[in-house]
Design a protein around this nucleic acid. Sequence first.
DNA 1: CACTATCAATAAAA
DNA 2: TTTTATTGATAGTG
Lengths: 232, 232
Amino acid sequence: MSRKKVRLQYIINQSSRRSTYNKRKSSLLKKVNEISILCGIEACVVVYGENNDEPEVWPPGPGTQNVLHKFRGLSELERNKRTEDLEGYLKKSIEKSQEQLRKQILENKKKRFTNFIDKVLINQHNNTDLVSMNELNDMKDELNDLTKFIDSNINEVEKMLNSMNVEVEEHVGNGIEAMIGIEQQGNSGNAINGGDMQADVHGLNIQNDHQYVPWDNPMLSYHDYNMDTDNL
Amino acid sequence: MSRKKVRLQYIINQSSRRSTYNKRKSSLLKKVNEISILCGIEACVVVYGENNDEPEVWPPGPGTQNVLHKFRGLSELERNKRTEDLEGYLKKSIEKSQEQLRKQILENKKKRFTNFIDKVLINQHNNTDLVSMNELNDMKDELNDLTKFIDSNINEVEKMLNSMNVEVEEHVGNGIEAMIGIEQQGNSGNAINGGDMQADVHGLNIQNDHQYVPWDNPMLSYHDYNMDTDNL
DNA sequence: CACTATCAATAAAA
DNA sequence: TTTTATTGATAGTG
């Protein structure tokens, strides 16, 4: 059976988008109504159309106002707590991207240097000139050019991020928390006492300070997101 | 056939109600997210649980508040109206992290290998033995460690994917079929013949990537990574 | 905008 | 929780 996958991304075709908007908006309002009745809870939804005029809301009338007012009344601390979800999401996205980036970089390096080292070993062993001075210098230059290489990788990553295809069809059973916890002090057997290897490639201590920017246009296709629905 | 129509009324049974609440709430948040992305519009939802404490909202963070402010006519945000939307913000965060990662890796590698290369150069130049066979072998060992490191990383990633990207395919009585599409060009350790250092991590076909964690309803979205980094 | 094959949501059951 | 049986939601289509 073929499965039709719908990409979770902005629908370019205007008529399709409008159609989808109308259909989904209706069911959304309907569902908000249902859950509030079925579960006896308060809930509201606000949906703006493209024209950015009057939003569709549920429940109609003062109902929404009340719920919003309630939400609005939360202390700053409480509301900030909500941002934790976002933060977790962002962190995961970032980690994932970094994972990809890192793997690529390491792959490339591994191949590159392994090859080089092999040459040097053979060179010494045979006392030949497999590895010329030029080659060595090139190697050195190459190391310095690593920056460019990585930069271009980053561009690739960005391009990737720009065209992330998220499929709406996802369904899964177990909600496992998969953390990309790659930690490993991988350096063993280093020799060349040379420089300090302090830069821990593995640690990935990327704790970027998240500053929350006021965004109001939640148009972002996200991939891994965590819905925190524990309480209740 | 008996069909049990679920009537639209308060569910008396507590466990049923709770279950329904969780399931519906999750899908509600998901749908709000979807419509906002698909149609490029602003939307938010606020759902209170029975305990009436912290409401679940979407989008997380300032997103909801901005929508609500807008709804409430508090167009104060009109000005702050972002220079950055969520997407931009996300990208910047990632970029920033990647920048750090890049630097770490770069620094580390540069020190490590530059030092090595220097020795080799001097060695050749003076025909001395600054770089011993042992040292070279150590270097090679290190590179092999790199391989192991990478391999273990790949395992981590696979584990991650296993737990978050499972495509459920329903078949008659067959239970679940999980398809995990990790593809890797695992060639390594090639030698002398240089070869292209292109490592492409691709095919990360993740069903439900993005990452739902501690929630009850693990919905994931995934990205289609296709990082091709051949250059350099 | 009605229709409908498909896929998703979810009430129940285990 | 996880699995199943049904109903519900909807992307396409005319």
